[in-house]
Computed example of a mutant assay.
Amino acid sequence: MGQKVKINVKERYTDGEIDLSMSDLDEVPVKEIALLKKTVSLDLSNNRLINLPINFSTLTNLTKLDLSKNEITELPEDFGALSKLTYLDLYRNKLQHLPLSFGQLTGLKFLDLKDNPLVPAIAKVAGPCLDTKGCHQCAKDIVTFYKRLQSEVNTEMEIRNKARQKQLEINRQKKLEEKKKVKKEKQKAKKENTEKLIKNNTEKISKKEPKKNKTPQKKKQKKISIGSLIFWLIIILFFVVWVLTSIQHPWVDPLISTLNLYFENLLSKIPPEYRPYGISCINSVKVLQVYTRNITLKAIEFVNTDKNIQEFFNRIKESYYKLTEASVTSK
Rank of each mutant, 00 (worst) to 15 (best):
residue 292 T to N: 07
residue 62 L to K: 07
residue 300 I to E: 13
residue 243 V to G: 03
residue 72 I to R: 04
residue 103 G to Y: 00
residue 125 V to G: 03
residue 239 F to L: 13
residue 318 E to A: 15
residue 325 E to T: 11
residue 3 Q to A: 08
residue 237 L to Q: 04
residue 46 N to V: 03
residue 254 P to M: 02
residue 176 L to R: 09
residue 40 V to Q: 11
residue 188 K to Q: 14
residue 82 L to E: 07
residue 232 W to V: 09
residue 196 K to R: 12
residue 53 P to E: 03
residue 285 V to Q: 08
residue 305 T to C: 03
residue 227 G to Y: 05
residue 227 G to R: 11
residue 90 L to S: 02
residue 298 K to L: 15
residue 55 N to G: 00
residue 42 L to D: 01
residue 198 I to L: 14
residue 312 F to R: 06
residue 114 K to H: 09
residue 185 E to M: 13
residue 201 N to S: 10
residue 18 I to T: 04
residue 57 S to A: 13
residue 41 S to N: 08
residue 313 F to P: 02
residue 90 L to D: 06
residue 259 L to W: 08
residue 174 K to I: 05
residue 166 K to G: 09
residue 258 T to E: 04
residue 7 I to R: 02
residue 241 V to M: 12
residue 226 I to H: 04
residue 2 G to P: 15
residue 160 R to V: 01
residue 133 K to P: 00
residue 15 D to Q: 15
residue 43 D to S: 02
residue 312 F to L: 10
residue 54 I to E: 15
residue 32 E to K: 12
residue 63 T to W: 00
residue 239 F to M: 09
residue 231 F to K: 12
residue 279 I to T: 11
residue 182 V to C: 02
residue 183 K to R: 13
residue 80 G to H: 05
residue 225 S to K: 14
residue 169 E to N: 09
residue 102 F to K: 00
residue 305 T to E: 14
residue 4 K to P: 01
residue 238 F to N: 08
residue 156 E to T: 09
residue 297 L to F: 10
residue 9 V to Y: 05
residue 226 I to T: 10
residue 231 F to P: 00
residue 263 F to D: 03
residue 295 I to Q: 07
residue 299 A to M: 14
residue 45 S to A: 10
residue 223 K to L: 15
residue 324 T to H: 09
residue 56 F to V: 02
residue 49 L to R: 06
residue 16 G to D: 04
residue 315 R to T: 09
residue 8 N to Q: 09
residue 194 T to H: 07
